[in-house]
């Protein structure tokens, strides 16, 4: 049987906030997730991840939408559906870069554990006005053993640093995404 043709991708545009991140932006609509991936009683090490998305001129992009998807402190991806009253680790979050004064993003999560031979990491899905197809990248940690990670091993060594967050304080990490330029972030093709 011939495969069906996929529905083509289109940009998220500049006005996604009242639909996808309503609570963060102060719109009168609920949000299914926000920038906190932790539950009510977080296990493991709670961390903050902050960063920016920079365009080809080095300007921070104020209308990007970022999604985090990650394993928990035991290396498990949550498979139980997320619910409204849910005190467990969520493992999925969203944040738009339109509310922080410096057009940054900020997630509160737990440090994920390594799983199946991969170094601990956070999966990042990136949308923005001006992006016709979403992009996928990963955040690795500077204080973990990354050397045997199969994905990092297949990345051009000169670009590996674009995938590793910087420590910016106790349990605090900085991860900037560069769309272009010398520090252009490595994006993955799914």
């Amino acid at each position: 049987m011939d495969k069906l043709r996929q529905t083509p991708s289109q940009t998220v545009g500049p006005f996604f906030a009242y639909g996808l991140t309503a609570r963060q932006y102060g719109y009168d609509f609920t949000s299914i997730v926000d920038n906190s991936l932790v539950g009510a009683f977080p296990m493991g090490i709670e961390i903050d991840i902050i960063g920016h998305v920079f365009d080809g001129e080095g300007k921070p992009i104020p209308d990007a939408l970022i999604e985090f998807r990650q394993a928990d402190e035991k290396g498990r991806y949550r498979s139980v559906p997320l619910e409204k009253a849910d005190s467990d680790f969520r493992g999925f979050g969203r944040f738009g870069t339109g509310t922080e004064p410096d057009a940054g993003f900020h997630f509160i999560t737990v440090k994920p554990k390594a799983l199946s031979g991969q170094a601990p990491h956070i999966n990042v899905i990136l949308f923005m006005r001006g992006s016709l197809r979403h992009l996928y990248t990963r955040i690795y940690f500077p204080d973990e053993l990354n050397i045997d990670d199969p994905i990092l091993r297949s990345v051009d060594p000169s670009r590996i640093r674009t995938l590793i967050a910087e420590s910016s304080g106790a349990n605090r990490y900085q991860f900037d995404i560069h769309m272009q330029g010398l520090n252009e972030t490595v994006f993955f093709d799914l």
Binding site: D55, R69, P81, L82, N123, F188, D189, L190
Partner: peptide, 24 residues
């Protein structure tokens, strides 16, 4: 100014089991 200039890195075989969350 917002599109990557380098080719995306193919990682399909390493990620084929990667899930997204379910929603209740």
């Amino acid at each position: 100014l917002r599109s990557p200039t380098r080719p995306l890195m193919p990682v399909r075989e390493l990620l084929k089991d990667l899930t997204l969350p379910a929603f209740g």
